[in-house]
Computed example of a mutant assay.
Amino acid sequence: MEEYIKWATAVVIPLLGLIIKYRSDNQDPGAVRRMKRHAQLATELPEESKKHLEELLDVESGLYAERMKRRAQRKLKGGTLGAVILVALVFGGALFGLSAWAFIWPWAWIFVGVTGFFCVLFLVAGAMQLYEYPQDRDEPAAPHAPAVQEEQPQSAGSVSK
């Protein structure tokens, strides 16, 4: 029986991973499915109602195209990827050592939990900075720039000073 469990873990789990990957690659993203539903609905509506749904489709397709363009133009930061891998290895080694210590002294599981928590925080923060986008490369960020206000059109009866 133990032999079957080894085979199941060695074969079934990677096979499930491949099946899930294959299914997700052949599936439309949610935005595309929503646009397809809206386009189908637009064909079924009367002419006077189509205008609003076509405007919605224009906006949705524009936003989707912008997201895909942004994703295609991003570049992986090698230094950040190396730092994430290094942090994962260091924290993994620390967690391994702390886990071994925790089997000797049960209160050490607190240190394992705290270390694991910080490991997850560092890895999430690093993963959020893995890509460099075109606007990050071209323009320096101005976080404290004042907001530009548009001039309000004056009515015909008002007088400007």
Rank of each mutant, 00 (worst) to 15 (best):
L57G: 00
D58A: 07
V59H: 08
V59D: 06
S61F: 03
S61R: 09
G62N: 02
L63N: 05
Y64L: 10
A65C: 02
E66D: 09
E66K: 09
R67E: 12
M68T: 06
R70M: 13
R70W: 04
R70S: 15
Q73R: 12
K75H: 07
K75Q: 12
K75V: 06
K77L: 10
G78W: 05
G78S: 10
G78D: 10
G78M: 14
G79F: 06
T80A: 13
T80F: 12
T80I: 11
L81Y: 14
G82F: 11
G82C: 07
A83N: 13
V84S: 09
I85M: 11
L86K: 12
L86M: 11
V87P: 00
V87F: 07
A88K: 01
L89D: 05
V90S: 03
G92H: 03
G93T: 00
G93S: 01
L95M: 15
L95F: 06
F96H: 14
F96M: 15
F96C: 12
G97N: 04
L98G: 11
S99Q: 06
A100K: 14
A100L: 15
W101K: 15
W101T: 07
A102Q: 05
F103P: 03
F103T: 09
I104M: 13
W105H: 14
W105V: 13
P106A: 10
P106K: 10
P106C: 08
P106G: 09
P106Y: 09
W107I: 10
A108T: 14
A108Q: 14
W109P: 00
I110H: 09
I110Y: 13
V112G: 00
G113H: 07
V114T: 09
V114I: 15
G116Q: 09
F117W: 14
F117G: 07
F118Y: 15
F118P: 00
L121I: 09
L121D: 07
F122C: 08
F122Y: 05
F122T: 01
L123M: 03
L123G: 01
V124Y: 03
V124T: 08
V124G: 06
A125C: 06
A125D: 07
G126D: 02
A127T: 04
A127E: 04
Q129T: 10
Q129G: 04
Q129E: 10
L130A: 07
Y131E: 04
Y131S: 08
Y131N: 09
Y131L: 11
E132V: 12
Y133T: 03
Y133R: 04
Y133S: 00
